[in-house]
Design a protein around this nucleic acid. Sequence first.
DNA 1: CATGAATGAGTATTCATTCAT
DNA 2: GATGAATGAATACTCATTCAT
Lengths: 212, 212, 212, 212
Amino acid sequence: MPKVFPDYREEAKNRVIKESVKFFSEKGYHKTKMAEIADSLGVSKGAIYQYFTSKEELFLEVLKYYIEYTQKELISFLNQSTPEDLSTEEFFDIMFNIEQSQSVETLTILDRLFPPLDFNLAISELVKSNPSMKEEMTKYYMDSINIMTKYFEDYKKKGAIKKNIDTYSLSMGITSLQDGLMAAMQMGIEISEIRKTWKEITKMILKSALSE
Amino acid sequence: MPKVFPDYREEAKNRVIKESVKFFSEKGYHKTKMAEIADSLGVSKGAIYQYFTSKEELFLEVLKYYIEYTQKELISFLNQSTPEDLSTEEFFDIMFNIEQSQSVETLTILDRLFPPLDFNLAISELVKSNPSMKEEMTKYYMDSINIMTKYFEDYKKKGAIKKNIDTYSLSMGITSLQDGLMAAMQMGIEISEIRKTWKEITKMILKSALSE
Amino acid sequence: MPKVFPDYREEAKNRVIKESVKFFSEKGYHKTKMAEIADSLGVSKGAIYQYFTSKEELFLEVLKYYIEYTQKELISFLNQSTPEDLSTEEFFDIMFNIEQSQSVETLTILDRLFPPLDFNLAISELVKSNPSMKEEMTKYYMDSINIMTKYFEDYKKKGAIKKNIDTYSLSMGITSLQDGLMAAMQMGIEISEIRKTWKEITKMILKSALSE
Amino acid sequence: MPKVFPDYREEAKNRVIKESVKFFSEKGYHKTKMAEIADSLGVSKGAIYQYFTSKEELFLEVLKYYIEYTQKELISFLNQSTPEDLSTEEFFDIMFNIEQSQSVETLTILDRLFPPLDFNLAISELVKSNPSMKEEMTKYYMDSINIMTKYFEDYKKKGAIKKNIDTYSLSMGITSLQDGLMAAMQMGIEISEIRKTWKEITKMILKSALSE
DNA sequence: CATGAATGAGTATTCATTCAT
DNA sequence: GATGAATGAATACTCATTCAT
């Protein structure tokens, strides 16, 4: 591990972030201790503080990492799909970070990622004492909506989506449905139920939105 | 209030719960301190422990109080409305705890209540150290879905809802949409945007679900 | 120890202050640990934090306590003495907190008090990050000068001090001499040497200041 | 500067010392971090440890540097002045490290040096964990006194100072007055006030000490 | 010689909870 | 029942110092 390597610092940060994801997603912000992240990385606590000023900052970076990852997944999916594909199991699995095991019955959440709502408690708490963070989070949230809006707008121009549809509301609706179902997942609702709901509801929405 | 009064205890508990709601909803679970709840009530910390074994228990009671309140609102609304009314501003305002001020422009969130998402999230953290709690919370969540399902089922029998519609998925979809928009509200998205999305999306969903 | 006693809080604070004096004076600000103060008092660390927000605040209170004590000693001495008495061993011993043991040879510094300069390091450090504290300290310092100035001014009116003497400078000079000798004491200079210097120099100063 | 140069080491040490002076004098011992000294020098922390075993040792070297500098100034002044010159503004400015700007009103303390009291005090804390250091510091302190004593003794022999004057006490008195006024300067007392006190008090002392 | 990543011992501070009065 | 002083376990964070490169 050449420590004088130019991008060593950047790589080290990333290693910490990736390790932290596991803990924050599994145990939440407060139950996660700096000591256990350090232990898990096989380094001292001090080492983490070389890269992140505080636990809060580390959490924020973890958050960004996750959000950016998710946005990329979304963009990549949209680039190769038609609106109808949104009602698809594939889209559901990607956006909900679900991994299909051998048997269709056992679905597990990818442990290298995590449901975003697991963070929201911490976010909503941290945001209250750190208003600048709110802006940033809002920005990320809106970005996702805007990406989808542009996508729908394209299809609207092509005539695939009805003229009278507000693509921005459509995007926010679909995003919200996803977020809400993510919460349901956390409440312990069966994934199969959630997946079914996703397919049914998006189908209904799209049926109204798409031109015949 | 004479202390010999039989349900003095019950009333005292309620007073604590109602005061606690403000803090938990405004500052979240961790940032809320037992001391400040006590101060705000004008009693000592010890007094609270006369009624609640722990902060966690208090929080749970607050949760139940909120959920029951919300369920009542939902039931009461459903009792006097047709499915179409779900796309209505009235329903939105009730379910999102929004209070319309004099001017249409200024909408404020009722401070005596608060978005349920914050709760869902606090739960998701607490649930991990108290698994028995998960069941209870899931039960509450499902109850709400079931109430709505029964409601839709009635309309299905009457023929107002198409035969092929899965009313359970419909209910979960609408509930999730609501939860997701609640999250958007917390992210700082304009209430007018959220309301618009709610109206548009529910209208789309219902258009597909309702018989012509 | 009745904890609900009206002035219990005030008394408890004082007990902490008096205990802390020992440690701060002996080991300085940084080497003194909250834990040892607590241990020495036979209470938990938390107990101290009930009365003082921080170590810094505790230190400040200790400081005030000391300064006020010293000012009182000064006032009391001046009230019953003529300027000539300043060159006296008694004054020296009082102002330098020196206690004469059985044998004249063994002089010990009172352990319930402490040389003020021992604090100055901490003060000068803390003052830099807490400008409001500087004002307060300056105020205390000036108060002492002013007390002495008024005293000399009285004697000037009575004709005992020459008309052309600036009593303010005289006061600051004597105070500074004292502070400087206190530092010398800390440097390990023999107390007998310091005492001798005090007597000689004050005598010289007063010889010039007092009317024949 | 070629690294093969024999006293490269010595020069490097000096560079570190001169840079450290700024920080120690401005922020005190504890608030000064090795990292900031290194940064300010544009080198790594490790580099400093090539020349100084520890922060404490560095601080001590800085101290010596300062004391030696001050002693040189004192010696050089005494060599070309009579005792009366001690009451002079020039002596004050030199010993108090004050720099006269264009206008007489704006006096600034040289930032490359700093009041010795700050050092005395830092010593008093460090000395406790490193008693051997005390001797060394005491030696330095006494050296200064002795230099002045010898100086006065010369004048005593010449008959300029009264026979009955203890020149050692006289020296310690003047040194202490200086130290005490240095403390006053740190307390935020106006330099003009301090300078005035210096002139008045030394004049009084010398009036008694010098032969008519 | 120089670097700077990693160390790890050290500590102030917080706060839910208890219990003597 | 009520009080609030005391508890004590729990943890984030600091920074002088080391050492592999």
